[in-house]
Amino acid sequence: MKIEPKDPLQASTQNSTETTQSRPTLRTVFLDRDGVINRKMPEGQYVTSWQHFDLLPGVPEAIARLNQAGLRVLVVTNQRGVALGLYTAADVDAMHTKLQRVLSVSDAHVDGFYFCPHDKHQCNCRKPLPGLFEQAKKQFPEIEPATSLVIGDSLSDIEFGHNLGLQTIFLEGDESHRQHQKPGASKAADLADRRFPSLPDAVDYLLA
């Protein structure tokens, strides 16, 4: 179910000068990974290899539409399983390389992947802390919070966006996904600027 936005975003320049000045044109979309791009594992379990990477329906096409609209698409993801010794940073990179290949079949791509391999309270890059945003801005200095948005399915994603001044979208997911949501999902849904069932639904709204 769609929630009407408090302040509609722009995916393209509007005719109204006042509207354009108050709501800068969207340039960058940050995507969480697990639960947004691929199906989230049950709480306490991790996507350790491509074998367990279950791409959600419509995601390649949704990302392709963002690409075609000229939006920068970046993935920001906490990967605590690396710190727990369940898989390596190289394994994460390999999954992202494979994801790019799969996306390319739909003429889609991700412009950058940024992940936190640390455990809790060990770094500045574990969402909701700002380190992954800072890494992205180092690679793309033109990124600004006012022209950026984050799409996620957990409280840490939405707090990450709010702490940085980004617009936020919460993904509710299907019934199976909701069974695996982290604690705080209800708070995240209330805190987010808007919420949608899936990434394709969110993209439909952004590009409408």
Results as ranks from 00 to 15, higher is better:
Tyr46Ser: 07
Leu71Cys: 06
Val29Asp: 13
Ala83His: 11
Leu56Ser: 10
Leu66Ser: 01
Leu55Tyr: 05
Val29Arg: 03
Asp34Cys: 00
Thr77Lys: 05
Leu86Met: 05
Gly70Tyr: 12
Tyr46Gln: 03
Gly35Ile: 01
His109Phe: 07
Arg23Gly: 00
Val102Trp: 11
Thr77Asp: 08
Asp54His: 10
Gly81Cys: 02
Pro8Trp: 04
Pro5Leu: 13
Ala83Phe: 04
Val59Tyr: 04
Asp107Gly: 11
Lys40Pro: 10
Ile3Asp: 08
Gly70Met: 05
Ile63Thr: 12
Asp54Pro: 09
Thr19Ala: 15
Gln21Ser: 15
Gln79Arg: 00
Thr97Trp: 04
Pro42Ala: 11
Tyr114Trp: 03
Val92Gln: 02
Val102Ile: 09
Gln51Cys: 14
Ser49His: 07
Asp93Pro: 07
Gln68Ala: 14
Ala11His: 09
Leu86Thr: 06
Leu103Ser: 00
Arg65Gln: 15
Ser16Thr: 12
Gln45Ile: 06
Arg23Phe: 01
Asp111Arg: 04
Gln14Ser: 15
Gly44Ile: 01
Ser16Asp: 15
Leu74Met: 13
Met1Gln: 13
Asp34Lys: 00
Ile37Asn: 09
Thr77Arg: 04
Asn38Pro: 05
Arg72Gln: 15
Tyr114Leu: 09
Pro24Asn: 06
Ser16Ile: 06
Asp32Tyr: 06
Leu74Gln: 04
Leu31Lys: 05
Thr25Asp: 11
Phe53Lys: 00
Val36Gly: 04
Val105Arg: 05
Thr13Ile: 12
Leu56Tyr: 02
Cys116Tyr: 01
Asp7Leu: 10
His96Glu: 07
Pro5Asp: 09
Ser16Arg: 08
Leu86Cys: 01
Leu56Trp: 02
Lys40Ser: 14
Val92His: 06
Arg65Ile: 09
Leu99Lys: 02
Pro57Phe: 03
Asn67Leu: 08
Thr97Phe: 07
Leu84Val: 03
Ser49Glu: 06
Ala108Ile: 05
Thr48Ile: 15
Phe113Gly: 04
Leu86Val: 02
Arg39His: 05
Arg23Trp: 03
Val110Leu: 08
Val105Gln: 14
Pro8Lys: 06
Thr88Pro: 04
Asp91Ser: 10
His52Trp: 10
Ser104Ile: 03
Val76Ile: 15
Lys98Ile: 08
Arg65Asp: 03
Asn67Phe: 08
Gly58Glu: 01
Leu26Thr: 00
Val82Met: 05
Ile3Arg: 15
Val59Asn: 08
Ala64Trp: 01
Thr19Asn: 11
Gly58Gln: 06
Lys40Arg: 10
Thr48Pro: 05
